[in-house]
Structure formats: structure tokens, C-alpha cells
Design a protein around this nucleic acid. Structure first.
Lengths: 346, 346
DNA sequence: TTGTATGCGTTATCAT
DNA sequence: ATGATAACGCATACAA
């Protein structure tokens, strides 16, 4: 036995020579084709093992037009990239499941080599068998092009036509939060929301539905725009809310991370949470549960989101012809925390 | 102009037919070879553009043995994966720089397709031009095999022979922390450290050196083992430290994240930070700066770590023959915070 | 059941 | 300056 030195030198041809079968027989045996006799297959497999054979993915991909490679498109507006805890958790479980199913993952971007290319072109260039799209501006024409292409695609937290979507149950989550806050005695609830995306729409809808069901009228002033994952804009919105003549007793934030901006603003004004003002976040990231007071939030099941995304993407790839796009809703969970004060009902 | 439908159909052959030059001329022109006349090159480039030509990376890789693909090996013991804020920040800036330089990144793992393979084999299978290794058990034989292979490799936070390492200045960081804590009047400083890695060794060395320089004797009881990024084990160590007959006045933690375990334990005992006990972390992740009190910690420059790693890896790939392994130290920065109480000097 | 022959798209060698 | 041809490693249609 000699250690392999240098690049992967052992090819099917080498195996063929060594054990006296033709390259096609070897190839078939290696792929466990039933055409080949059991004994022959065993011999060939054994030899391959001994010689340290490794298939050449480029050659295979060239021939079969498949790469066992999944693209991940993941570019948030705030450029937080993988530092975005919620999405990196999703991507991570996606990665784990994808690997379990036998796929590599490659990040899709705009520039590769010396050339600029669209996301779609990048996927074609890398022969990605499928792509998962998360955390992007879904209005970006480049994203639309990719999603509408023939490449199997799965989106996370956004619905496109004819494209399977893995969705966190935002309607339900927001409702649960409002109901909990209401049950704690609050009647003046403000909502700071993120950019105008389908997620935001659903959350806003959930907010308003819940309020209506509770017979709460929400002043327009109580709805403030900000950005996801951006403490600064949420801090600004918080300041505006606090300076209202009739300020809310509880503020809901776009997400846990952006809540930090609100927290800082509230501290700066010498107010304390939750004594003077109650707050709630969204996502249930680790951070939210180690802050003091513990944040009231809605935990999204990032594990399930990523895993389902991988499973369904692979399904879509394998059953390319018969696969039908679905929408898969992933349940979350209210985390009560201590950031919403119990008010005496009036 | 027709929109391309289906997979990437335009090949060099097609361009060749369309503009009347041979495939080899087209190939050369596309690669900006100087053999080809300027005018011809222009025509071919133009035609390629019009036809929406996209090179086939598999074919190219098969022929050239290069992939423009960088492997990322990144598997921490706690299985936090990308949820590990410090490392995912490093990987993220690595990704950004790699893409800028024209490389894709692919995660390396153990299973791909239906086969189990070593990290090294996975890299060969994917023809990775180089690999960055971070956040793994560097004693794992599989990791060693990879690092010692002919594939250009860069490690983060660990030194191997003949392998460029990008290193956070752990010696300096720990020293700075100790000096700051000492300057705040503390004389009883405990250190909870992570697994026995080269990083830990350097940090421990920094700790002891600083103490010696300050004429502090450190009881053996004050040094406790725990694990990185694992709040639980640090919580346990904290409990032990607090129950000592002569407990420390300040506890240093393996990292900011694991400090959370300590924080919970301290709270559980009804003590308050920093009034009753001072604490310090390591890493300077976002979390550390939004906790109250703000954590005293040492910020590692994740941006620089990732960027340098990518730059150097590409250097190593391009100058494969002449490249010499180096060690690159990245400076960090003390973040004072409010978690170390100012003691009256005695 | 096994072997022969061909081609995937590209680059590289060698002619012209 | 340009073109003909072979070869990278593999999978497959077809022949035996």
C-alpha cells in the first residue's frame, strides 16, 4: 500500500487495468448497477477501495449534468451575512440536512472569477441541482429570474408562484404576541415593523387582526416603519413612540436584534423595562433569552425551517417532473420572558 | 434576442459556428489569450455575450484541474455550526473576500453522495483549490491529513507546521484583560479556560505571564477547565469557584458566550454583577455589548481574520511553488465594559 | 453479463 | 494569427 501523493490520480481506467475488466464494467459496478454480476461488483469495489479511488466530480458532472451541489442564496440588506443569527441558524440546519442527503452546498453570489454574473448564471455555471433562497430582497430582478428559472428553487419566508416555500407562521406568531400582551393588561400596543415584505405584511395583518378581535383600536401613530435587523432605525422609531402625547405601554419590535436599538433608547431616556415600558421582540434568538429582563418574543423554529427546506429541495430535484410546489408552515412558540409587565386591569 | 430556456445550452462550439472561428480560437479569445488578434477577440467576446455564453465549470475543471472553489472546514465540537457567532463572522468575511477574488466556497464535510469520505477526499472530490480550516478539533487525524496534504491550506487560530495560520493575538488579549482587571484593584482573579488547544495554551500562558509580572500568585483552585461556547460547563466551574473558602473577586471566562452560564449561576446565587463579583469574557461578540452590565472582554477582529485568511489562501494557491507558510497575527482590542468593579486598593 | 465506442465542453499541443 | 486534433474522467447506448 502506498500513500497517495499529489492529486487524485486513480481513475476508472486504472481500476480497469488492475482487475482486468473494461472501464464500462468498472463504472457500472462502482455505481452498483444491477447489470453487473455480484462477484464482479465485489471485486471491483474492493480494488477501488484498495487503490483509493475517488470519483472525479467534474467529469461526472460534465457527463450527467448533475452536481450534487446545492446553491444557497443568502444576502440580507443589512449585509450582516452569516452574522445574522436567525438566518445563519436556518442555513446551518439546511447544511446539515443537505449533507446528510448527500449534497454539498455552495454560496451563490454575483461575482466569480473575473466575471460578474447573475445569480441564475452563477447557479448554471456551478450546475447547482437546486437552490435555496433566503434573506434577500425578493423584488430584486436577479432573484426573480432565478426563482422563475428551471432550476428547482425553494424560498424561505416568501411565497412565489410555483415555488415551494418554507414559512414561519408569522400571522400566528404576531397574534400570539398581541394576545399575550393584551392578557397582561396592555391596551396601548405599538408595533414597529420591518421593510415592506411579504413577511411584514403577514405580521402586520396578524397584528391588526388580533387587535380587532380584542376590540382594540390602534392609532396610526402606533405603527412605525423601521428595518429588520437594524437596531438604529428601531431606536429612532422608539424615540418617536415615547415622545407621543399618549405613548404606548408596550412596543413590539421587528425582531429581537433590532430591539436592542429600542432598549438603548429606552435606557437613554432613563426609563426602565418593563416597569416604565413593556417590550416584545420576534425570532427568539439566543440573545433574547439572556438579556435582562428576558425578552418576550416568538421563537421561530430555525431547525425545522432549514431541515424542511433541504428535504423539500432534494425532493424537488429528484422528482423534478412530478414535484408540485407547496407551502410548508413551520410552527413557532411564544416565549413569555419578563419584558411585558403585568398591568392592573382597569 | 431570445431568452435562454432550459439549461446552459450555449457552448464554445456554438459560438464557433456563429462567428466562423474554430473552437480553439474561440476558447483562446474568451480567455483573453494574446495569441489571438485584437479584432478577432473583440468579435468573439461580443458574440459570446450576445448568445449568453456561460463557461461550463465542470468541463473547465476537468481539463485544468482547478475549480475556483475554496473549501471551508468548520465543525466545532459543540455542534453550534454557523450559530457560533465568532466563527460565523470570520467565515462570513472570508466568504466576502473570496468572492471578491473570484472564488466560490463550499463546505467540507464527511458525507457526500452516498459515500462517507475523509475531509481530504472531499476536497479532492470537489477539486478545491484550497481550504480554510477553522473551529475544529485540530487533533482529529482527518484534519491533520488534510492540513498535511498538497492542497493549500490555511488554519485559523491554530499553528501547524508548514501551514499558514491566521491568529488572533490570544497572548496579548489575555494579558490586556488581566492588566485591566488588576488595575481595577482585583487581586483574586480566577480563570475558566476552554479545551486544551493551542489557543487555550496561549491564553493560559498570557494569564500566567501577566500575573507573574504583577506579582500575583494564583491558587490552583482558581484555574478551572470548561469548554468553549458551552455555558453549562462554565456555569459549573463558576459554582465551584464561588464555593471556595476564599473565592475570587473576578472570574475570566473562556468566551463571551460561555459566560452566560456563569451569569446565570451568579444570578441564581443571588449575587449581582459587578457589585458582588466581577467578570470578563473573550471575543467581543455583539451579545457581550448589549448585556447589562456590558461585559468586559477582548474583541477579536473577525473581519480581519476572515479577510486575511482568504487573501493568503489565494496567494498560496496562485504562487503554489514559491509560497512560504507564514503566521499572521491579528490584533484585537480591549472592551472595558462595566462588568469589572473598581475596587478600593488595599 | 461484459465490452466497445462515443461524447459531455473545455483547454492545450502542435500544425499551418 | 488561426485551426485541427487530442485528451481530461466518466457514463451510457449499443454490440457481443
Amino acid at each position: 500500500m502506498f500513500a497517495q501523493i499529489g492529486a487524485n490520480l486513480v481513475t476508472i481506467k486504472d481500476i480497469s487495468k488492475r482487475c482486468g475488466y473494461s472501464t464500462s464494467t468498472v463504472s457500472k459496478a462502482l455505481n452498483r448497477s444491477l447489470e453487473i454480476g455480484q462477484k464482479t461488483t465485489a471485486i471491483i469495489q474492493q480494488t477501488a477501495m484498495e487503490m483509493g479511488y475517488l470519483p472525479n466530480s467534474a467529469a461526472r458532472s460534465l457527463k450527467t449534468n448533475r452536481s450534487n451541489n446545492l446553491g444557497v442564496l443568502f444576502i440580507d440588506e443589512m449585509q450582516s451575512g452569516l452574522a445574522h443569527e436567525y438566518f445563519s441558524a436556518v442555513i446551518n440546519s439546511f447544511k446539515v440536512e443537505a449533507e446528510r442527503l448527500g449534497y454539498d452546498i455552495t454560496f451563490i453570489s454575483h461575482n466569480i472569477g473575473n466575471m460578474q454574473m447573475s445569480y441564475y448564471d452563477h447557479c448554471k455555471y456551478r450546475k447547482c441541482d437546486g437552490v435555496v433562497v433566503a434573506c434577500v430582497d425578493f423584488n430584486d430582478p436577479d432573484v426573480v429570474e432565478l426563482v422563475q428559472s428551471e432550476i428547482p428553487t425553494i424560498t424561505i419566508d416568501h411565497i412565489f408562484n410555483d415555488c415551494t416555500a418554507i414559512l414561519s407562521d408569522n400571522l400566528r406568531g404576531t397574534k400570539d404576541l398581541v394576545n399575550h400582551i393584551y392578557a397582561s393588561g396592555h391596551r396601548k400596543i405599538a408595533y414597529i415593523h420591518g421593510e415592506n415584505t411579504s413577511v411584514t405584511k403577514r405580521r402586520l395583518a396578524g397584528f391588526h387582526k388580533a387587535c380587532r378581535a380584542l376590540n382594540l383600536t390602534v392609532p396610526n401613530d402606533y405603527i412605525k416603519p423601521a428595518r429588520y435587523h437594524d437596531p438604529q432605525s428601531s431606536g429612532l422609531a422608539t424615540r418617536e413612540l415615547l415622545s407621543l402625547s399618549d405613548p404606548p405601554t408596550c412596543i413590539m419590535y421587528p425582531d429581537d436584534f433590532s430591539y436592542i436599538g429600542g432598549m438603548n433608547e429606552i435606557e437613554k431616556q432613563g426609563l426602565s423595562i418593563p416597569e416604565d415600558i413593556s417590550v416584545a421582540g420576534y425570532d427568539g434568538i439566543y440573545l433574547s433569552q439572556v438579556l435582562r429582563p428576558k425578552l418576550c418574543t416568538f421563537r421561530q423554529d430555525t431547525d425545522a425551517l432549514g431541515t424542511e427546506a433541504a428535504k423539500n429541495l432534494v425532493d424537488a430535484i429528484v422528482d423534478q417532473k412530478t414535484y408540485i410546489a407547496k407551502q410548508i408552515w413551520i410552527e413557532g412558540q411564544l416565549l413569555v420572558g419578563n419584558s411585558v409587565k403585568k398591568l392592573d386591569s382597569e
